[in-house]
Design a protein around this nucleic acid. Structure first.
Lengths: 196, 196
DNA sequence: ACCTGAACACCGTTCAAGT
DNA sequence: ACCTGAACACCGTTCAAGT
């Protein structure tokens, strides 16, 4: 493998780190592992990142942009707010693939500052997603599909709960559970709860 | 620290491991760390457990019994099903303290069999909790407080979602969020959705 | 039966040295 | 400017040896 500029190496490393965390978890992420995928020696990584934590942060940034893109893509161009929300649930499989890394990060718990900065980056992503969903819900209230007395923030969290519980069930069962049923059931429950 | 029987050592170790995972996370769990808390040398632990994984399993078993106890305690002796459910939400703070370890385990992702056996133990616990909640919901349907057309399993998962999202929010914000508001809002939403 | 101490392979990080 | 190779402290596990 030829020499590469730090700019390119940083991108390569972020991609590999994200892939490893997504497919094999944080515990399987090792400097020798990342380095060998690039045909390098582990110490070479320290030219491009100060430490492992910064490599993880770069991977998180990548995941964030993919995640936001996914949500925006799901809701955009839908004829009304309820269809947009349903479409977010429908893209759960892509959602889930990107989202694994967030609980892994949040619940990994190293100590002190490291913890806080990891957690903060996930919190920002979740807040951005929730705010996007909140917008859709407001739109739903405007067109009279969602009860106006409900607080959009509360509804957004309940909606987010559908994705979160599905994600947990998926990981608890190793993917062996009926996603479609979960979504249908949860959606019916949700729709009934928000109906004017 | 004097010599102790394997029986006593296993209990001591399980307690210490659970405490470390709960307070500092799986990453901070080290053989030297556990051993020193008992005034032992790390290799001494291998007399009582075959490896680190079995120590974690013992800690999980401890957490399971505490968790089930908590739920049973919250629902028992309540005058009706809705009060029992609300009381589960009210005990969130204790719930959360015990429950941290589950996502930590589920999302830690070591490889292969280890993963599967860790995940399975958490799945069993979640299923047991869900089945307890389902029973309460059936009771609620019997006394006419919950719409009879709803599938108790679906309602149980929606209810579980309240705890799960609260737990996530708690960890995302480092405990700096209004639990009571979350519970009040979510409960109102839930109650409205299940009302006959 | 319970524990110690030395050893091994592995990991994250540093640093001097190569090109 | 990018990379290698040796070194260090740390971890999980094994094993022979102590009492």
């Amino acid at each position: 493998m030829p020499r590469q500029s730090t700019e390119i190496r940083r991108e390569q490393i972020a991609g590999i780190v994200l892939e490893i965390i997504t497919d094999h978890g944080l515990e399987s992420l090792s400097m020798p592992g990342v380095a060998s995928r690039l045909g390098l020696v582990q110490s070479a990584l320290y030219r491009h990142f100060n430490n492992k934590e910064e490599m993880i942060a770069a991977a998180m940034k990548l995941a964030k942009s993919r995640m936001i893109g996914l949500v925006l893509n799901a809701v955009s161009g839908k004829s009304d707010a309820m269809k947009a929300l349903r479409s977010v649930l429908a893209s759960f499989d892509e959602f889930r693939k990107i989202a694994v890394i967030f609980p892994r990060i949040v619940f990994s718990l190293p100590d002190g500052d490291t913890l806080e900065s990891r957690r903060d980056s996930v919190r920002q992503i979740v807040e951005e997603i929730l705010s996007n969903i909140e917008n859709v819900i407001c739109e739903g209230q405007r067109i009279g599909k969602i009860k106006k007395s409900l607080d959009p923030a509360v509804v957004a969290i309940q909606f987010w709960g559908i994705l979160v519980t599905a994600n947990l069930r998926w990981h608890l069962t190793g993917g062996d559970f009926d996603v479609e049923s979960h979504m249908n059931d949860a959606w019916k429950f949700f729709k009934n709860a928000v109906a004017p």
